[in-house]
């Protein structure tokens, strides 16, 4: 929950970094940040010969907004950082990260005053503003165009080990890596494992592209969130909350990685679901797969409801099981498996 509450709007992830650093510091051998800001956390393997290199990637950034103009009446005009659904914005409380953090609210024209033809339509970006309660001159001293805005929403616990909060996409993935790193302390592993908290995934997986170039992995597994079951989403398009990690397959996934993840889950008695990928794009798996001469990729999805809202809901059990699966996977990868990746 602490991970989800940290602020790390895409491109401005540094505030979220401290928490990650302190979680992983004792679990890995070396931590560095690449020039774009992704954190690369290296746990060395036991192999004597050059070890296989596995990269786990979850993105650190979250969607948010940016100040695009300060109006003379004291309102901030805003634009999205990542895919923000503007229908959810009215009545949102936000933090404006100016010279100091300011509270703000996103209001809306009351229905009494609204043109009746617009009542059933979604707001446009130029109809949404942030109100910090300040006159323009004071506001301009504290806020500049280009300052970022994050959602003010603390994670809460629901029944049945479910939690809801902002930016579970993809702090859940960071939590999965943390569980995997903890589990890996108890296991032996030949391969080098790189836990990578990537930046700028929400604006085109920039951090996934650059960190993979630097890590040069043999195997890359992205951990992201997948759409959970809820009314209105057909069963065949949804993952079951509490049903365990979803192992993805499709053109964005190497078939041997898919099989090995499934096999590992079955051997260890970890419940899992399978998720067909209809497009290779959309996660860091795409970025990893297409780097340098190509990387054998996998994708693990944590089932999550209400994606890109501030009440993204998931099951903590799924997070824990996903972490265990990754740790057992890393422990089972040896040089023979790596060599087999180019045997089709």
């Amino acid at each position: 929950m602490h991970l989800a509450d940290a602020r790390g709007v895409t491109g401005y992830e540094s505030p979220a970094w401290d928490g990650v650093n302190s979680l992983f510091a004792d679990l890995v051998d070396e931590i560095r940040r690449d020039p774009l800001g992704s954190a690369i956390m290296w746990k060395k393997g036991a192999a004597k010969e050059p070890p296989a290199r596995i990269m786990f990637a979850a993105h650190l950034d979250e969607i948010g907004m940016i100040v695009s103009k300060i109006e003379d009446e004291g309102f901030l005009r805003i634009w999205m950082m990542g895919g923000v659904d503007r229908r959810i914005l009215p009545s949102m409380e936000v933090t404006v990260h100016g010279r100091r953090d300011l509270h703000g609210v996103i209001g809306a024209i009351p229905p009494h005053l609204q043109d009746s033809s617009k009542k059933d339509k979604s707001w446009k970006w130029d109809e949404l503003t942030v109100d910090c309660g300040m006159p323009a001159d004071r506001l301009r001293e504290l806020v500049r165009v280009g300052d970022v805005i994050s959602f003010d929403r603390r994670a809460i616990g629901l029944a049945n080990d479910r939690i809801a909060g902002k930016s579970m996409d993809d702090r859940a993935g960071i939590a999965v890596m943390y569980e995997a790193a903890r589990e890996l302390q108890k296991l032996s592993h030949d391969c080098d494992v790189f836990f990578v908290a990537t930046v700028q995934e929400e604006v085109g997986y920039g951090g996934g592209i650059t960190s993979t170039f630097g890590v040069m992995p043999d195997i890359g597994i992205a951990i992201d969130v997948g759409h959970g079951n809820m009314p209105g989403v057909p069963e065949h398009e949804a993952l079951k909350l509490g049903g365990g990690p979803a192992i993805s397959f499709g053109p964005h996934v190497h078939p041997h990685i898919f099989s090995k993840l499934k096999e590992t889950a079955e051997d260890r008695g970890i419940p899992y679901q399978v998720e067909p990928g209809t497009s290779p794009r959309g996660t860091d798996a795409y970025a990893m797969q297409m780097t340098r001469s190509g990387v054998a990729t996998g994708l693990l999805s944590v089932p999550l409801r209400y994606m890109h809202t501030s009440v993204e809901t998931l099951s903590l059990g799924d997070v824990k099981k996903s972490g265990q699966l990754l740790a057992y996977f890393a422990s089972a990868v040896d040089s023979r498996f790596r060599e087999g990746l180019t045997c089709f």
Binding site: G37, S38, V67, V145, G206, G207, G214
Partner: peptide, 24 residues
């Protein structure tokens, strides 16, 4: 100077930033 948040459009800096291990 003035500060700019452009909704649509890109510049070469977008390509430079994602080169190799990343470029500020």
């Amino acid at each position: 100077y003035q500060l700019e948040v452009l909704e649509r459009g890109g510049t070469d800096a977008g390509a430079i930033a994602l080169t190799r291990e990343g470029v500020p």
